[in-house]
Design a protein around this nucleic acid. Structure first.
Lengths: 322, 322
DNA sequence: CTGAAAGCGCTAACAG
DNA sequence: CTGTTAGCGCTTTCAG
């Protein structure tokens, strides 16, 4: 198209990129010709020239192999779209790598970094990326690994606040419903719950949910509420639809918040519209996404002076269920 | 690293790609050196050479400007991850383009095609992509546009089946709760409902939901159920948590399915666990995703003989609420 | 102010 | 069986 416009490649490039010092007339001629011919610069060639592709991988690692969680989780849905939006604002595009993605499936992508949401313990994906010298951004379980950065919420404090809150509202026996997973967050919740119980001299009432999804979680909630003597507080950390948690309590003959105070870890907006509205602990996916992308951009572009990680606070949104 | 191995670039390339006819010894030496040095071929250079990047854009267009819907919608969450997984199986990677993405944000990406989920009427994004000669895969609203392919569900049949089902179960006055949007699907539902009512001589009872999200939908449901005489059938096409729809009926003093038969268009797994379980009409996001990716791959790789579009059936999952 | 030439890292012809 | 060479489409010195 340079030929078509009667100019050289150089001049056209300068005209289209707004660089160099060209006469307005020439610049306009190049632009006009480009428009007329529907010319668009080849993105791959520009990337090669620039030495960077501005592409970031995005993996959800939790329950790797089971696509379930991600599909049904408002947390991951929000995290994903907030990450994509934040990345794009910084000039990076996000490529989706479903859990279970193999090395040969991403090896052909010019990834500058990869975000691994909620890796499992010693996640092989994280190892693979680090071995390929691709910087990894994940949660605090990767702290101290060279090439890895992290963003995390202060789980310890969040659990303590939630349990203290339930206690203030009169709960003396708070049951915990937790996924049976090796995600750092879940392990930390378990540890923090036990520590809190020890400190308060409270009995530990833990029900592990064997699989993700509303069905298993609801069954586990019912199981937890069947303990004798009855729990009068319920802390549901496994993602489930809050109205269904209330239904389970109702089936057990417990009124909320009279007999049972309920807090759910959830981003599900149905919590606010349930009857009664359900108190939630938000893991703040949008803030996590934005902090993660900021960290990533500064590590990739500014270089060395970037902190290795960022710690955010979870947020307890108190509603009528407690 | 060719020098390091004492070989030429060509030989190394052939060794690593398994092409050419090299002695096993040489091949192994190249591989070993690559491993030792942590060498990985530059993906961008390969893409440039190959003339294709195997990257596909993915946009959600509904309620462009309002990120809400996508965040809270199990339909889009499933569609998104199923699309990403299907694409990867075919060797393509999906890059996320949030609704509202500007031309200059995707112009630098070497996209071979773009998937636009649920575009609004005359979606400007679709126009931009077609103008840039990037093939568009979307719903049937783009049919007949050159360069555009589509996958859609048979809305007409789905609405008819749902309304017939409600009628069989005894509903004589079925109210429709529909988002106030210009998505093709929503317009078609509206038209099909009116046609059905005309055919059956039934009164049209339509409530338009002004905004996405559980709150507005639940309010609209309550409004719909407040009509006199009371509806005895409810068809909720706006995405909402099914248990919340039941709550709304309960607040209106209606028992389900005794006084009111309920069908929700939803992918939310909480429907199956609600009390009573809620009949849903599934738009089959996973099947749509897979059909769309198959179509895309065959259009991109096989060339001309690809059909312009694919029509799938929705699926009614009958449960106790009707 | 504009054009020719080099080179980003790779692979596919083609010579040796 | 292996190595040299050209070129993918672009940007950027550097001469003219």
């Amino acid at each position: 198209m340079a030929r078509e416009a009667g100019l050289s490649k150089t001049t056209v490039s300068a005209a289209l990129n707004g660089t160099g010092r060209l006469s307005p007339a020439v610049r306009e001629r190049a632009r006009e010709t480009a428009r007329r011919m529907g010319y668009r610069p080849n993105a791959t060639a520009r990337q090669l020239r620039a030495g960077r592709a501005r592409l970031i991988g995005y993996v959800v690692g939790e329950f790797a192999g089971e696509p379930w969680t991600y599909l049904d989780s408002p947390y991951f849905a929000r995290l994903t779209s907030a990450t994509a939006a934040a990345a794009l604002r910084h000039g990076y595009a996000l490529v989706m790598l479903p859990a279970g993605t193999l090395q040969r499936e991403w090896a052909d992508l010019p990834l500058e970094a990869v975000i691994v949401a909620d890796p499992v313990e010693d996640d092989p994906l994280v190892e693979d990326f680090l071995a390929a010298r691709i910087p990894v951004f994940s949660d605090a379980s990767v702290a101290d690994r060279p090439g890895a950065h992290w963003v995390d919420v202060d789980t310890e404090a969040a659990v303590r606040d939630s349990l203290d809150h339930l206690r203030e509202r009169g709960a003396r026996r708070t049951a915990l419903v937790l996924p049976d997973s090796t995600t750092r967050f879940h392990r930390q919740v378990h540890a923090a719950y036990r520590a809190w119980c020890a400190r308060r001299g409270a009995e530990e009432l833990v029900t592990l949910v064997p699989a993700p999804g509303n069905g298993p979680v609801v069954r586990s909630v019912e199981e937890a509420l069947g303990a004798e003597p009855r729990p009068d507080g319920l802390f549901v950390v496994a993602e489930a639809s809050p109205p269904l948690v209330l239904d389970a309590a109702r089936r057990r003959g417990l009124s909320v918040p009279g007999d049972l105070r309920v807090v759910c870890v959830s981003e599900d907006s149905s919590a606010a519209h349930a009857d009664p509205p359900v108190t939630t602990l938000s893991l703040r996916p949008v803030e996590v996404a934005e902090a993660g992308v900021s960290l990533l951009v500064s590590a990739l572009e500014d270089g060395g002076s970037t902190p290795p990680g960022v710690l955010l606070s979870a947020r307890l949104r108190v509603r009528a269920s407690s």
